[in-house]
Simulated assay, not measured.
Amino acid sequence: MAADTPIDMALWQGRTDPEPDSDRWHQRIEPLTNNAAPGCALLGFESDAGVARNQGRTGAAEGPNALRRALAPLAWHRIAPVYDAGNVRCVDDALEAAQQTLADRLTSLLTAGHLPIVLGGGHEVAYASWLGLAQFFMPEASASKESAPEAPPRIGIINLDAHFDLRDPAHIRSSGTPFAQIADQCQKHGWSFRYACLGVSRAANTRALFTRAAALGTLVREDREIDALRLDSIVRDVQRFIARCDHLYLTIDLDVLPAAEAPGVSAPAARGVSLALIEPLVEAVRDSGKLRLADLAELNPRLDIDGRTARAAARLVHLLSLDS
């Protein structure tokens, strides 16, 4: 089963500066209400089930609130509002129910005109995020049905991740299978599967996964390819990918970052891609005008050192939300 966790505005605390125009997130964030004007809506996903099924280190269910606490003191540079929409909690191993609950919440947020940013939680959040977006574009038929719309939306998925997460879901659905699940659903509905995975570690993905990614037409850039000299070229690759899409879903697995920058994840990266190189990729997606939904996954406060991972995640949310 899944449960909605009440909005806890007490998480939003920080310093208040006396100078004019010196607001911080904790001063401007609002609890989401039914008639709220369109803005950015933060929705947490308290889930460890997918990580546990994937035999990873649990603790990511505590990530959403840790990320809120890291966001709270950051300087405010937005024009439009930001709302706290609470959390969806996965109870025990009821992952599929929790994913459906999160998807339904996201569909409602999208219908209300918000830009949802989901705070994970394990990367099993990705299937729920995509499902919410799919339901929004296909309200007459949920993603569990076989029918397809007459004009399928061209949804591009950009995943910043050390892992493809394309493992076969026929064995068990976990944090390692969401994009294979999405590909299966796209095939059932007659939708194109448009997937880019940036920051992949060859050491952390089997040959079978590279083969599957190639068969699915995935845009792949490995961690060792993303450096300062080649960054502009990779940004252009991403922009070409974006040009072939109508809508974008951005998902960031924090294990794409080096372990020194993001120690608080289930599988820290021996190499990774630095935050300084990740940010221009995020900006390219944000500035495209096509971003409909984003999530951040795998923040595990139990494993974090001095809040490094939470701070990096908060900076990425801050970057994503900039509208001025």
Results as ranks from 00 to 15, higher is better:
Ala2Gly: 11
Gly14His: 01
Gly14Phe: 06
Arg15Ile: 09
Gln27Leu: 11
Ile29Asp: 10
Leu32Met: 11
Ala36Trp: 03
Pro38Arg: 10
Gly39Trp: 07
Gly44Pro: 10
Ser47Leu: 11
Ala52Glu: 14
Gln55Lys: 01
Gly56Leu: 08
Ala61His: 12
Gly63Asp: 09
Leu67Asp: 01
Arg69Gly: 00
Ala70Phe: 04
Ala70Gly: 00
Leu71Ile: 02
Trp76Asp: 07
Asp92Trp: 13
Leu95Asp: 12
Ala97Lys: 11
Gln100Asp: 15
Ala103His: 14
Gly113Phe: 06
Leu115Val: 03
Pro116Cys: 08
Val118Ala: 12
Leu119Glu: 11
Gly120Cys: 04
Glu124Gly: 01
Leu131Phe: 09
Leu133Met: 15
Leu133Thr: 13
Ala134Arg: 14
Gln135Gly: 10
Phe137Leu: 12
Met138Val: 06
Pro139Arg: 02
Ala141Val: 11
Ser142Met: 09
Ala143Pro: 09
Ala148His: 03
Pro149Ala: 13
Ala151His: 13
Gly156His: 04
Ile158Ala: 01
Ile158Gly: 00
Asn159Tyr: 11
Leu160His: 04
Ala170Met: 06
Pro178Asp: 10
Ala180Cys: 06
Gln181Trp: 00
Ala183Pro: 05
Gly190Phe: 03
Trp191Pro: 07
Cys197Leu: 10
Leu198Trp: 12
Leu198His: 11
Gly199Pro: 09
Ser201Leu: 08
Ala203Ile: 06
Ala208Leu: 10
Arg212Val: 07
Ala213Leu: 03
Ala214Pro: 05
Leu216His: 11
Arg221Lys: 13
Glu222Ile: 09
Ile226Gly: 06
Ala228Ser: 14
Leu231Ser: 13
Ile234Thr: 05
Ile234Asn: 09
Val235Gln: 15
Arg240Thr: 15
Phe241Thr: 08
Ile242Phe: 10
Arg244Met: 11
Cys245Ile: 12
Tyr249Cys: 04
Leu250Ala: 04
Thr251Ala: 13
Asp253Leu: 05
Asp253Arg: 03
Asp255Met: 07
Asp255Cys: 10
Pro258Ala: 06
Pro258Met: 04
Val265Thr: 14
Ser266Phe: 07
Ala270Glu: 15
Asp287Lys: 13
Asp287Trp: 01
Asp287Arg: 14
Arg292Phe: 00
Glu298Leu: 00
Leu303Gly: 00
Thr309Gly: 01
Thr309Tyr: 06
Ala312Phe: 05
Ala314Glu: 08
